[in-house]
Design a protein around this nucleic acid. Structure first.
Length: 506
RNA sequence: GCACCUUUAGCUCAGAUGGUAGAGCAACUGACUCUUAAUCAGUGGGCCCCGGGUUCGAGUCCCUGAAGGUGCACCA
């Protein structure tokens, strides 16, 4: 009995001890903060700092700045104390510079306080630009201000932050400690900026259409459902902006594009995130050929912008993104990689027979065009390494696309493949309202067969076509995947600042 | 959804066959007036992912769960 009681008390004490020990390094920093506050130097009361130069300006204009006094601000990420002299690396958004701090120059009190600074603290440093004996461009500190205190320790600077989960959940730490991460997101920004410039130069206007939809349309995908309280209706996060953008072509804009987030309630993997960014554009009086030219030139422009060349390496493979890209019909591609020539296959029964001859078991309700697409996915896709436009998609899987004038089983559509992945999807847009209603009716049939991703009828969209839409080319492209390709990133999560993660709450 | 893998100090990682946890960096103390992964000496720091079980004894073996990664499925 007594023994048990003793055992009960001891573990409790241990638990309390360990809890305080967990935050050992934080406690040290809190204590330092308390001392600063006692001395009237609360870093969190600082409002501004007059930065005269960024670190790259000092490096780039050293000859001019040598001997001049500059003021820089940033985060301390490395300390090398030598007693009465210490060296630190101060990082700002442009890079880093070494500070050289001497007790003679600062005075004993200020120098002691400088020595108390922690890795991660944000400081403003004023001093003269010079080069150390070992050749490092540095700032000889004459005064400094602690602008913010880091209460948490940063990861080891040599190994960085490697834990994928922590990188994604605490991207701010990843950005502080891993320079290549910042580079990727700077390139992402440059790519999106270049897309805008490219489109604006072609006299497109950028528009914004609803993200909250009452009918999710424009793609075959499961939507996220949400609820509007005062209207008391369920709403859907958009799966594509297509039907809205085409209404704007009806309205007379002639050239519109939208860059924005789409939401699809589907599985996540190395190339899918539930929310992702696309550009979608529509141009009146052009068609699929116009969209091909636009697409390949847009990609090449973005690549030149961030890589300075169209010849790039992605995940160990070489790619040439120089236009024009290859153009192959789906039927020809399927013939090349599977040996089956669908131009000789006219009926659903023949298509099933061909599928079985290749060891495929298509679902019973599939039709010829869907089986052709199945062949494409199974035998062709993974082989499309260099940029290739696959053209002439079957009508069954293209409910918003114009039929080919010379073959009503096919539509005037392409998808762009690079490294076996889809990057863009484009059509000569279907502008025949009667045909469009038939296509929706066909989709409805699919829905009744249990395909909960088939398109819903959007009556207002059909009505807009009845007012007349000019012949139009349209294209949509996944920007995240483009950024992956151009920054040699393996996972979509590496090009999203805050990829979707499960909550840690219980 | 299925399969496999991972989870140990703030970070990066070791911990054969079960015997109460180690290193490097980071932190703390001291030395050091040109270092740059500074160096040297010393010190502290652990709910070994959570919860069960087997066992005299579990970081290690078994079961359940969580989070993450990869592949498949689903899918732009």
């Amino acid at each position: 009995m007594e023994n048990n009681e003793v055992k009960k008390i001891n573990p409790e004490e241990e638990v309390q001890l360990t809890e305080s020990e967990i935050i050992e390094q934080m406690q040290v920093r809190m204590d330092k903060l308390a001392v600063l506050k006692d001395n009237g130097q609360n870093p969190f009361e600082q409002l501004t700092y007059n930065v005269t130069h960024h670190t790259n300006e000092i490096r780039d204009n050293y000859a001019e700045l040598e001997g001049k006094v500059v003021a820089v601000a940033g985060r301390l990420l490395s300390k090398r104390g030598m007693g009465k002299v210490s060296f630190c690396d101060l990082h700002d958004r442009t890079g880093k510079i070494q500070t050289f701090t001497k007790i003679d120059a600062l005075g004993e009190d200020a120098y002691k306080a400088w020595q108390k600074l922690d890795i991660g603290d944000i400081v403003g440093v004023e001093g003269e630009v010079f080069t150390t004996h070992s050749g490092e461009i540095s700032i000889r500190t004459t005064s400094y201000v602690l602008l913010s205190k880091a209460l948490r320790p940063l990861p080891n600077k040599f190994h960085g932050l490697k834990d994928m989960e922590l990188k994604y959940r605490q991207r701010y730490v990843d950005l502080i400690i891993n320079p290549s991460v910042k580079d990727t997101f700077e390139k992402r920004s440059a790519i999106i900026k270049e897309i805008r410039r490219f489109m604006d130069d072609r006299n497109y206007i950028e528009v914004e259409t609803p993200i909250l939809n009452t009918i999710p349309g424009g793609a075959t995908a499961r939507p996220f459902v949400t609820h509007h309280n005062s209207l008391d209706i369920d709403m859907f996060m958009r799966i594509a902006p297509e039907l809205y953008l085409k209404r704007l072509i009806v309205g007379g804009f002639e050239r519109v594009y939208e860059i924005g987030r789409l939401f699809r309630n589907e599985g996540m993997d190395i190339k899918h995130n539930p929310e992702f960014t696309t550009i979608e554009c529509y141009e009146a009086f052009t068609d699929l050929r116009g969209m091909m030219e636009l697409t390949e030139n847009m990609i090449a422009s973005c690549c030149m912008k961030v890589n300075g060349t169209c010849d790039i390496e992605y995940q160990g493979k070489q790619f040439c993104l120089k236009p024009p890209f290859a153009r192959v019909t789906m039927t020809d591609a399927v013939k090349q990689y599977s040996g089956i020539d669908f131009s000789n296959i006219k009926t659903d029964a023949e298509a099933f027979e061909a599928a079985r001859s290749k060891g495929l078991e298509p679902e019973a309700h599939l039709r010829r065009g869907e089986i052709l697409n199945l062949f494409f996915e199974v035998f062709v896709e993974e082989n499309l390494i260099q940029p290739t436009f696959i053209c002439d998609y079957p009508i069954e899987i293209s409910p918003l696309t114009k039929k080919k004038n010379d073959d009503p089983t096919l539509t005037d559509r392409f998808e762009l493949f690079i490294d076996g992945r889809e990057y863009a999807n484009a059509y000569s847009e279907l502008n025949d309202p009667i045909d469009q209603r038939e296509r929706f009716a066909d989709q409805l049939k699919k829905r009744e067969q249990g395909d909960d991703e088939a398109n819903l009828i959007d009556e207002d969209f059909c009505m807009s076509l009845e007012y007349g839409m000019p012949p139009t080319g349209g294209m949509g492209m996944g920007i995240d995947r483009l950024v992956m390709l151009l920054t040699d990133s393996a996972s979509i999560r590496d090009v999203l600042l805050f990829p979707t993660m499960k909550s840690l709450d219980k």
